[in-house]
Nucleic acid binder design. Structure first.
Length: 404
RNA sequence: GGAGGGGUGGCCGAGCGGUCAAUGGCAGCAGACUGUAAAUCUGCCGGGUUUUCCCUACGUUGGUUCAAAUCCAACCCCCUCCA
């Protein structure tokens, strides 16, 4: 399919498009300025992670092409819980946690989007604003009647749960109803005509489009992004420590940079297209590098992605530290640092720095010749360490001990 | 409410009175090889420790036994069918 709008051309070329509800209509609308679209985000944690980055980049691309992005905080829907792609109901969160999560999550958007009152400035909304006002009976009469349970039962989010004999509570069953209503409400308030999201959101999105047509005759659109996997087939964004968080409080800049620096060779081009603003020809050049030269492309990826999410200073510091640590065998200041006041036995230092989860593990790693102090292999678990020193576990994980 | 099935380590899934900290797979960590990649091979993979010792753990709480994840009772939760 060839698009007329620069917006869809870019999305297509960069690999963001999985499904469109009405490609021609969206294309036509994108030719005019002010296309308004939204993505919803649950507030289930204190930070979004790399798995959300696709959606965030979708909003960014929209803004880059003159559209108006809306980042919808799911202050209301988080209390209900989206069953899509899950086997079991999530733990219910209390209001204080949801509020704290929202405050924390909001911050990351300011790095990717420009907020304000201008025609293509981004808006942040929270569906708690309208969902918590709803009157149950009125809502059922005005909106509930437009939902076919027959059809809802065929949606993947519901059907898969039932087929696997996993429980699905009524509250979760209502999630798509509320999400559909969100779309209608955003259309009313902000003339939002498109909802975007991951491919697992297709059902929820099309339900919202139907609801909009029925209750207000609005013509709404949907666009989903493909599920991004690593070249080895695994789901993107999981590492040893868990999710790759976007917030600095949840994941230090150094680790964020390292995540991108260590992606599979085969993923470099794809990730550059999706998660950076780098021009196509530059990506093509980096992508054509062979063998060890691909490391240059990975550094470029890590710098660009980290600059977007954490700022140019963070990227530069991480790169400098990487060079000092890996290329020169020394240590850079962005490495995780821990203060010790007295000589500390090696195993305790390993636990303190988080390089080992327990003393037993620390002992085992020493036995496996995985531990080094200032680059020298260590074999005695009781050896006292005096700051300053660099502790290393394996080739990649390092920590600094400083006098304190 | 009735009948049946089930709840085991991050996940899946064996075990069904001692030899069980619990087979196997996945995930993870480390070593070798490399390029801070992939693939492959090897080791590790609850905690503590002076390492053939102690603690914690097989839904919860009690009980039987020299000894229980394994047997019994009650309770909680999940699934299926019936009402």
């Amino acid at each position: 399919m060839s698009y007329k709008s620069e917006y869809l051309q870019t999305l297509e070329r960069r690999g963001y498009i999985h499904q469109l509800t009405d490609a021609a209509a969206i294309d036509a609308r994108a030719l005019k300025p002010g296309l308004t679209a939204y993505v919803g985000f649950d507030l289930t944690g204190p930070s979004l992670h790399i798995g959300h980055l696709m959606s965030i980049m979708m909003l960014r691309r929209l803004q880059q092409h003159g559209g108006k992005p809306i980042a919808l905080m799911g202050g209301g829907t988080t209390k209900v819980g989206d069953p899509s792609g899950k086997d079991t109901q999530r733990q219910m969160l209390d209001q204080a946690t949801i509020d704290a999560n929202k405050a924390s999550i909001k911050r990351v958007f300011e790095r990717f989007l420009t907020f304000g009152d201008g025609p293509s400035d981004a808006i942040m909304a929270d569906n708690a604003e309208w969902l918590e006002q709803l009157n149950y009976i009125d809502f059922l009469r005005d909106y509930g009647r437009h939902f076919s349970v027959n059809r809802m039962l065929t949606m993947d989010s519901v059907r898969l749960r039932l087929e696997r004999d996993q429980p699905l509570s009524f509250i979760e069953f209502n999630y798509m109803v509320l999400q559909s209503y969100d779309f209608v409400e955003l259309n009313r308030r902000y003339a939002c005509v498109m909802q975007m999201g991951g491919s697992d959101q297709w059902g929820n999105i099309t339900q919202g489009i139907d609801l909009g047509r029925r209750v207000s005759g609005a013509e709404l659109y949907g666009l989903t992004t493909p599920l991004i996997t690593n070249a080895d087939g695994s789901k993107m964004g999981k590492t040893a420590g868990g999710a790759v968080w976007l917030n600095r409080e949840q994941l230090p800049d150094w680790d964020y940079w390292q995540y991108w620096r260590n992606v599979d060779d085969r993923d470099v081009g794809k990730f550059l297209r999706l998660f950076t603003d780098m021009p196509d020809d530059e990506i093509a050049r980096l992508e054509s590098l062979q063998g060890a030269d691909i490391n240059d492309a990975k550094i470029a990826l890590a710098n660009a992605a980290t600059t977007l999410c954490r700022g140019a200073d963070a990227a530069a510091a991480a790169e400098a530290t990487a060079r000092a640590t890996f290329a020169e065998g020394g240590a850079g200041e962005a490495l995780p640092s821990f203060a010790i006041s007295d000589p500390t036995p090696l195993i305790d230092a390993l636990v303190l720095t988080g390089l080992a989860a327990s003393k037993g593990e620390a002992r085992r790693k020493i036995g496996e010749n995985a531990v080094r102090i200032d680059g020298e292999p260590a074999t005695d678990p009781t050896q006292p360490i005096t700051a300053p020193a660099k502790l290393s576990l394996g080739k990649k994980r390092h920590a600094l001990l400083t006098a304190g």
